[in-house]
């Protein structure tokens, strides 16, 4: 595998040519915002927060799915990019029903962290207030669709790591929704192994353990990296 040198935010660095911009930047201390990306599962490219500018390209590129190349000059911060990122996060807030003060993930939420990192102090788009439900049919966990940002981390972890494929997205566009099995209550799912990986992978309070009250749900999906490494070693 070739090693290439590139410049990210005026900083010279090197990376393997099968690595993406996001990981090479992260390795060198440059954090690029993202919500759908999670180490240990495949890339998705849907949240669009990791868009960066690449010199010589008129289009913006998603850092999580763009491989580094020799001589590449990348810029991860600009007024334009931060404006876009703010609007995208605002869109997520207006799409669902996010009320931090009563959320189990308050203070432990990637969406909340993202909005404070991006210095979002108010939402200028109109809230959509969708009618969404809570599925508490599972013995151990609860799915609150109001807090779901459709990042599909749970879908991917369930399919790629646990191998159950309990979760998937039904519908399209603004009607998209997370469903278990063939749109059955989670508790009636035949495929769910109750492993809880989806809960750990979920960036918000959409998936959480039963019995947790506001602010009590702390998640740690780092173990997914070990599982992925072990799987890669085995094969």
């Amino acid at each position: 595998m070739r090693v290439v040198t590139l410049k990210i935010n005026d900083q010279e660095m090197s990376g393997r040519e099968d690595e993406d911009i996001l990981h090479v930047a992260r390795e060198h201390g440059i954090e690029i915002p993202t919500l759908c990306q999670l180490d240990g599962i495949s890339e998705w490219g849907g949240c669009r927060l990791c868009l960066v500018e690449i010199e010589g390209s008129a289009k913006l590129s998603a850092a999580c799915v763009t491989k580094v190349s020799e001589g590449m000059v990348v810029n991860t911060e600009s007024e334009r990019l931060s404006g876009y990122r703010k609007t995208i996060v605002e869109m997520l807030f207006t799409e669902g029903n996010h009320i931090c003060s009563v959320c189990v993930s308050n203070n432990n939420c990637e969406l909340q962290d993202m909005s404070s990192d991006l210095k979002i102090d108010h939402i200028s788009l109109p809230y959509r207030y969708p009618a969404r439900t809570v599925d508490a049919s599972h013995d151990l966990f609860i799915f609150d669709a109001n807090r779901c940002i459709l990042c599909t981390r749970c879908v991917r972890v369930c399919d790629q790591v646990e191998g159950a494929h309990t979760w998937d997205i039904a519908g399209r566009g603004i009607q998209s929704q997370l469903i278990s099995d063939l749109h059955q209550p989670w508790g009636e799912s035949d495929s769910c192994t109750s492993c809880g990986k989806c809960v750990e992978a979920c960036p918000t309070g959409a998936l959480f353990e039963k019995g947790k009250a506001a602010g009590e749900m702390v998640k740690d999906p780092k173990f997914l990296v070990y599982l992925a490494d072990m799987k890669a070693e085995k094969s």
Binding site: L92, T94, L125, R172, G173, I174
Partner: peptide, 21 residues
Amino acid sequence: CAAESCGKCVPCRVGTAHMHD
């Protein structure tokens, strides 16, 4: 466009709905 958006990426999924409204 809003009806045909696949829903994978946020700006198209939510943005087209807002623009339509």
